[in-house]
């Protein structure tokens, strides 16, 4: 339900006046000036209706799917940490980017987690294992296309906005790291239980 709630917040923010939603978006100068809430809130702001509808749908669907395999509190904590981490990664590693909006960093995180769940929680070489591989490959293909081939067409952004593929990459890294850390914890618990 967390993904659905996140998508709903995106829609609520979309219907707020422009001046209000602008105070929530990622704005490098404003963040430097101390408006740190933007690190969290920029992910619920969007440039266009098309970007909003696709991003929020992806987050809602994948959030719902991923949450079936993990505790709600875990996912909530992950969201709380991942939102500023993706923003901070953009802030420090992409200094040219003055403005950023979009929930796809979180979408990429959930995508990675869903693919990892599929891969590691299925029997090896089963149909679902291959489905996980395909899902992961699609994410990598999107990242490579956007980062190296400049494929604007694989996104739903207005023409005047560049694809922030870095947000997708950082989101995917955070999703992958969280999944493997969680797996390690589970494995340790199992090992402790067996002892």
């Amino acid at each position: 339900m967390l993904g659905v709630c996140f998508a709903l917040i995106c829609w609520i923010v979309w219907f707020l006046p422009d001046t209000t939603s602008s105070t929530l978006a990622f704005d490098r100068q404003a963040i430097v000036a101390g408006q740190l809430w933007r690190l969290w809130t920029c992910h619920v702001t969007h440039f266009s209706w098309q970007q909003l509808s696709i991003d929020s749908s992806v987050v809602a669907i994948l959030g719902y799917t991923v949450q079936r395999h993990m505790k709600a509190m875990h996912l909530m904590a992950l969201f709380t940490l991942a939102l500023p981490l993706v923003s901070l990664a953009i802030f420090w590693l992409v200094p040219d980017m003055l403005h950023y909006r979009g929930a796809s960093g979180i979408g990429a995180m959930l995508w990675m987690m869903a693919a990892c769940q599929m891969l590691l929680q299925s029997r090896r070489y089963s149909a679902y294992f291959w489905l996980g591989i395909i899902f992961l490959t699609l994410l990598f293909a999107k990242l490579i296309g956007e980062a190296f081939l400049g494929m604007q067409a694989v996104s739903a952004l207005p023409g005047n906005v560049q694809v922030a593929w870095q947000a997708h990459l950082f989101g995917a890294i955070i999703g992958g790291m969280d999944f493997f850390l969680a797996q390690c914890c589970i494995n340790r618990r199992h090992a402790a239980f067996e002892k």
Binding site: V58, L98, G102, K142, S155, A156
Partner: peptide, 9 residues
């Protein structure tokens, strides 16, 4: 790199 947006298709 002035404005960036994260988006799926």
């Amino acid at each position: 790199g002035s404005s960036g947006g994260g988006s799926f298709s």
